[in-house]
Amino acid sequence: MVKNILLVGVGGQGTLLASKLLTTGLMEAGYDVKMNEIHGMSQRGGSVSSHVRYGEKVFSPVIDRGAADILVSFEEMEALRWLEYLKPEGKVVVNKFRSNPVSMLTGDTKYPENILDLITSKADAIILDACQIAEKLGNSRVMNIVLLGALIEVIGINSIDWEGLIEKHVKYDFVDINIKAFKAGRNQV
């Protein structure tokens, strides 16, 4: 069986590092892995997505509508944008965090109300404030690793040395805080 994990967010939130750690871990555990990223406009505030698929043998690198086992959204509105990609029985992990597109800054559009309620009413959802958790640890930027921790707990693969992977792929000075963030994320689930 192939498992599908979709990570979505807004440019600059660190989805790329999270999906890199995830896919490297899965590969080292012996799975066939494919990943697709659309991030062309990420530096200009666009929405970004990483499709991660793993199993014994994976063909397409892209997750179809209605096929994701887990949707991890780094931003509230993005969770709603991508919700139709989730299997009806799938799980969604949402970061309680909002990022306003330019049209909202100028007052031309409004941030939709009650997104989190809407999502919880439709799907099995885990909502966490990864940004606050990261800030408490001392650096809001490790928000992505908090979310990765929550995701790993949901996936439930324990045979992989995730913390060792973080050590290998994160700059030396930041290893400690990233491991703390990872553990904090796991404890949220």
């Binding site: 919700l83 597109p101 999502i119």
Partner: peptide
């Protein structure tokens, strides 16, 4: 396949 239908009309694009 079954798709979770939800009201995305209020989701604002990020051009």
């Amino acid at each position: 396949c079954e798709v979770l239908s939800s009201d995305t009309s209020k989701v604002v694009p990020r051009p």
